[in-house]
Design a protein around this nucleic acid. Structure first.
Lengths: 346, 346
DNA sequence: GACAGGTGATATATCGTTACATCATGGTAC
DNA sequence: GTACCATGATGTAACGATATATCACCTGTC
């Protein structure tokens, strides 16, 4: 009853030495069937569970890995996480997740907490404005680390999305539908990711001699997307299509259009990014640049496993393509470029 | 460069003994200002981070705690988690989260993983059909444990919601609006929680001599809620109001109604449970039984802290009340009890 | 000048486990 | 009967930290 069961207590119960119990538990060494039985019986009786941390200390093998992500509740991220966790779980790793909320100070504390508590590997979405100091800290520990979505220096493996190619394709799709005034909506802070997405959008506009580019900021939530859309529409009534930084923003934008008495996909076209589950269920269903979060998560986990198993391999960089999924929030541009505006005003 | 920094390497760098460094790092013992500086300088230089697991082994204090939950991505749960994490983070604890997906086998592996990897405390939403064996395993470890939402035996502290009172109130609200045919929608498996919620619903019906009770199962997702609503409506056209087991199901139900050409809150009233963020943003905004997930999460964390600090305290049971938030998905019952049906058929 | 007391550092044992070396035993070979 | 080998177990040190005891050294006191 008192105290948790250890190798020692099991050994005592079974009447053998500690190393013997250790070997039985791990199936190594030469053990007679008879003592094996005896030991297993004792272990069962005491509900013995080995202490991996003590084991890790001696053997150096640590099967606990950490995932530091910028937004825990975001459905896209949640699916990435579950993809990564599934793969690693199958390989006998325990994955624990922390949410930085894109706060660099919080992130610093959390990474340190992971280091203190011994992680055998890290998957990391660096927060906005991650200081070089944090990167240096991580480097000094020599823990196998893979950055995700946002790169952080050349010392870590990286898994990301072909952002510029994707927004280029998204914008081109809208141009092909006849839209001439296309805005970019969402994303906060000038992250590398956002820069690349905007670059793709601008490249597509430039290729068709359209412009000027209209880049409208917004937090990555549905509510913020709604408010941003209303505001954008008020100030730029000529806009008939928006490329969004993420599905949450896009769904919010649709909500905003409905609130303004407009119909997404008819009066104003909206295109998202990620293809989260809600995108296909929403009314109307959202056109979006789909990246399979499950696949991305598995890729991420696989890269980390490779690093753990082959620490000396050269740093790798993997980028996954996004794919245009056409649903009902994009459609031909209205006849007059401000037909949408006329529906509304006065 | 090679290998992670340890007390030993810092001691060597600073030219002092290992215990000295240990004392400096923790601010204990008597240390001259001069050596203190020297040691801190060396620690900074090597990016030294103490290994809490080794420390825990010797001192017995473990500030890493685990949260085992049944559905990670569920927005309500996500907010509970963030509430709990915030409080514990402030107290210097590291919280790691695992998702059982209500799979008992998966849960058993995960709990064991937490035990192996040494958690100083556990918050636990027991999966459906959790076997007694799992409970016994946990008990044998003597780890401070708090169950959440679903109780699991009398040996653990528990934090939950006044379920029966809440669904009673929800049903009564619908009765007051004139509804006479009210169904209960959602929830899978006969959990204690679901039983209690259904009991509240049935109690309210019985108090008004209404009936029979119609209990319709559904997974706790939006899509499943939508499908269940369509099916329910097809087979029970007289129903003019549904009490839902959760907001996700309720939002799905509204989607289903719209798909069937009906208007939530007018043709059929829908009431949810939880008050997740989407509930207030949805169109129309959802009437629901609100429990503040943040508050619940903090409560949960507080109970666990108390247990960790006072291991001998008698087992506690905390239940939080839910509060009716009236929005737009509930309204007066249509004139004819099957007015809704007539809108639809033939 | 010997002793008490405070200061600032170190020696040593220990936590639960694993790696490696060692040891007792019995069977086989010569 | 000695040597050799395989088998099945144990002894010991180490991982990185902390707790406790101990130890120099200095100061002040009688």
């Amino acid at each position: 009853m008192a105290g948790k069961p250890t190798l020692r207590s099991v050994a005592q119960e079974a009447g053998v030495s500690i190393p013997t119990v250790s070997q039985v538990m791990r199936g190594t060494g030469r053990i007679s069937e008879q003592t094996r039985e005896k030991v297993l019986e004792a272990a069962r009786k005491l509900h013995y569970v080995p202490d991996s941390r003590a084991a890790a200390m001696r053997s150096g093998e640590n099967r606990e890995i950490g995932f530091v992500i910028n937004q825990f509740a975001n459905p896209f991220n949640a699916e990435v996480v579950s993809g990564a966790v599934d793969l690693l779980d199958g390989e006998g790793y325990l994955v624990s997740i922390l949410d930085t909320r894109d706060d660099a100070a919080r992130q610093s504390r959390q990474l340190e907490a992971f280091i203190r508590n011994g992680r055998g590997g890290l998957m990391w979405v660096p927060a906005l404005d991650t200081p070089e100091e944090t990167v240096a800290l991580l480097r000094a520990q020599g823990i196998p680390t893979v950055t995700f979505l946002r790169p952080a220096g050349d010392d870590f493996d990286h898994v990301g999305v072909r952002n510029a190619v994707a927004t280029d394709a998204a914008t081109r799709h809208l141009v092909d539908l006849g839209h001439r005034h296309i805005a970019y909506l969402g994303g906060t802070g000038m992250t590398a990711v956002r820069r690349r997405r905007i670059a793709g959008y601008e490249r597509a506009l430039a290729a068709q001699d359209l412009g000027p580019a209209i880049v409208w900021p917004s937090i990555d939530t549905k509510r913020a997307g709604m408010e941003a859309m209303l505001e954008l529409y008020r100030t730029h009534p000529k806009v008939t299509a928006v490329v969004c930084n993420g599905d949450m923003v896009a769904l919010g934008a649709c909500l905003g259009l409905v609130k303004a008495g407009l119909q997404p996909g008819k009066d104003v076209s909206v295109i998202g990014f990620d293809d989260i589950e809600d995108a296909s269920v929403a009314t109307p269903p959202l056109t979006t640049m789909a990246v399979s979060p499950q696949k991305l998560g598995r890729k991420l986990a696989q890269v980390l496993l490779n690093r753990i198993r082959e620490p000396e391999m050269p740093v790798s960089l993997s980028e996954v393509f996004a794919e245009l999924v056409i649903r009902e929030t994009t459609g031909p541009a209205p006849q007059s470029s401000d037909a949408a505006a006329s529906t509304r005003a006065r």
